[in-house]
Design a protein around this nucleic acid. Structure first.
Length: 211
DNA sequence: TACACCCTCTAGTTACATCA
DNA sequence: CTGATGTAACTAGAGGGTGT
């Protein structure tokens, strides 16, 4: 019988392996990409099990219920519990062990399915959110473009009014945003910076990107 | 320490029961 | 009858514990 410590370690490894199957599959290289030759069992048309001579098949609902209750409280089966359960159910301890092995496999398979559904749903939500953000970025870029046009109009108007004002030498090249990067927002904080004392036709410029 | 032996585990497979 | 599905039982191989 293995110790409870190794059982805990096994449980941990199973859980971790669910998240990192690639890593843990590397621990068993013999199982990778190889088709193992397995011995074929003979068919049992005579109605008797090949090895034990005991008719197998279908556990009763009562037996399954008790097994399920035990599985619910603990997925691992220590040999003491196995023997006790076996005698309670009138089964061979081997049958109880096999039942737990198969039940764990079904449980894991179901868990993986649930995990897959969850991840799929999260992925779909993320895609929707990405679309939303992309649309928002487009809208914001449009707003920036409109703001630039407005600035241009104001500068042109101020040029006509006061040709010797300090702002008349203000070149549009200086405020043309570089539009670097995917969203074209990098560098704006410097381009749009105007000293607090700078007025253009009574309009106080503020660095909206630092607000 | 090295080895053999035993046990349990997972993953994959096979055989059989049941049902549509 | 037949194919699909569920599941009991099996196999192979890995790994841990223990005795010698």
């Amino acid at each position: 019988m293995t110790s409870s410590m190794s059982h805990q370690a096994d449980q941990q490894m199973v859980l971790i392996s669910q998240y990192y199957p690639g890593i843990y599959s590397q621990l068993a290289p013999a199982e990778q990409g190889e088709v193992k030759s397995r011995r074929r069992r003979k068919k049992n048309r005579g109605g008797e099990s090949s090895s034990s001579g005991v008719r197998k098949r279908k556990l009763s609902q009562e037996q399954v219920n008790l097994l399920e209750i035990n599985f619910g409280s603990e997925h691992k089966l220590e040999s003491e519990r196995k023997d006790r359960l076996a005698s309670e159910l009138g089964l061979d301890p081997r049958q109880v062990a096999v039942w737990f092995q198969n039940r764990r496999a079904r449980w894991k398979s179901k868990k993986l399915e649930e995990e897959y559904s969850k991840l799929k749903s999260e992925h779909e939500n993320t895609v929707v959110e990405k679309c939303r953000l992309e649309t928002e970025v487009l809208k914001l870029k449009e707003q920036v473009s409109e703001a630039e046009k407005e600035i241009q109009r104001l500068l042109e108007r101020s040029d006509g009014v006061s040709s010797n004002s300090p702002s008349s030498s203000f070149s549009m090249e200086a405020i043309e945003p570089p539009f670097l990067g995917e969203f074209g927002m990098e560098g704006f904080e410097n381009v749009f910076y105007v000293p607090e004392t700078n007025y253009v036709n009574g309009l106080e410029w503020v660095n909206i990107y630092n607000m």
